[in-house]
């Protein structure tokens, strides 16, 4: 782990949450973002599930990559390994929740299948490898990205609920206006850059 160790975990967390929000600057996780952001409640549920899965899988994938794939010279298989880990983890969590807590299953369970295909989860695992993060940095990055995703989807859901009754040009209804909102939010999030002294 080379020159990167210096980057504090707080800096990584905040950068991942705000200035380099995985959704608003890298467009990862757009599909479920546009589909589920119609109501604040469901958005919140999905967001929590994303944080949980993102943080956990970034830890698991980091360990697998550093301790298994690199020693055996199998880095080129990482895409398969990562995605299978994520899919398996999500299945496992779904089964555990189903068995243990009905309330939690009703709240989060239905979102779990959606998460396997959420590009953001895999994205976090891939970026953390490319950026050569340490384990703690990866945790911060995973948790930060998840939090950023949650904030973005809740804000989006709030705005969409508000404009539900407004008159919008016909062609922009639905996805079109959502994208414009996302664009404006993306600009707003760029404004955080100065706030946390990253720039």
């Amino acid at each position: 782990m080379s020159g990167n160790t210096g980057m504090g975990i707080f800096a990584i967390f905040f950068a991942a949450t705000f200035t380099s929000n995985i959704l608003l600057t890298l467009y990862l996780g757009m599909c479920s973002f546009l589909a589920v952001s119609k109501q604040i409640k469901t958005a919140f549920g999905l967001g929590l599930a994303v944080i949980f899965v993102m943080t956990s899988t970034s830890i698991i994938n980091w360990m697998i990559y550093q301790w298994l794939l690199i020693p055996f010279d199998l880095e080129y298989l990482r895409y398969i390994v990562f995605i299978v880990t994520i899919a398996a983890f999500v299945q496992l969590v779904e089964m555990v929740i189903e068995k243990t807590s009905e309330a939690l299953y009703n709240a989060l369970g239905i979102f779990l299948p959606l998460i396997t295909v959420n590009c953001a989860i895999l994205g976090v695992s891939l970026f953390m490898i490319i950026r050569e993060y340490t384990l703690t940095q990866s945790v911060a990055f995973g948790a930060g990205s998840g939090t950023g995703w949650l904030i973005a989807i809740i804000a989006m859901a709030g705005i969409r609920q508000k404009i539900e009754k407004n008159r919008i040009p016909k062609g922009l209804e639905g996805a079109g206006i959502a994208l414009i909102i996302a664009g404006i939010m993306s600009m707003a999030f760029m404004g955080f850059t100065g706030m946390i002294g990253l720039n």
Binding site: G3, N4, G6, M7, I130, E132
Partner: peptide
């Protein structure tokens, strides 16, 4: 030469 960028080395 090397140094730290925004995301990595």
């Amino acid at each position: 030469v090397q140094g730290k960028g925004l995301w990595g080395e």
